[in-house]
Amino acid sequence: MIDLSSKLEKLSLELVEKNAHLYKVTVKLENLESILLSFLNEFGYITLDSINCRDDLEEGLFTITYCLQTEKRDHVVMVQTSIDRENATLPSMHTLWPQAEIMEREMHEMFGVDFPTHPSLIDFALEYWEHMPPMRRDFDTLEFVNSMNPFRDQRGDNLDVKVEMKKRREEKKAAKLKAEQEAAAKLAAQEQQNPDSEAQNNE
């Protein structure tokens, strides 16, 4: 395991190995800011890859994960914390990693997490969104979609594909059979005619 674990032991934190390139630390919300600061300044994790949010609806929690990388880019450390789902509030990390600003804006929009110290908590991808944040699990997407955008009235020819294909195949078969029969009948008729014409020519 990377030499980080001994450093973390001093902070009485446990480093869990997920695989050779992925490690996880779980921290309490009170310590989050100071621990992320020491990750940046003392342990050299200069890059914040992403901030992820997971909606644990059953436990009433949001699980927030900060993915960090060193300059060498050889492994990722996930710093994980949980916050209350109902009044979800987090400190903004834009002072440590500037890219956090836009990640937090997205999280605010999609999950409704509040960042009191954030400098620009404005619309990100959605505009003037007035409903529940759409990535929350209790947001009923289907109901919302049906109420906002009903389907076009169905056309009269909206048919079951399997049944129709079977019907069409049978029709095709019947048409082919009919064509064959007609061709045979035509041939027979021609053969009947031909002897007459030959006879006429001979005359």
């Binding site: 991808a125 959605l126 759409p134 947001f139 997407t141 289907l142 919302f144 979609v145 955008n149 009903p150 389907f151 076009r152």
Partner: peptide, 16 residues
């Protein structure tokens, strides 16, 4: 744009 296509159940696109 006709009837939502494969984005018919998106919370952020229109259908008709």
């Amino acid at each position: 744009p006709i009837n939502g296509g494969m984005y018919w159940d998106s919370y952020n696109t229109i259908k008709k």
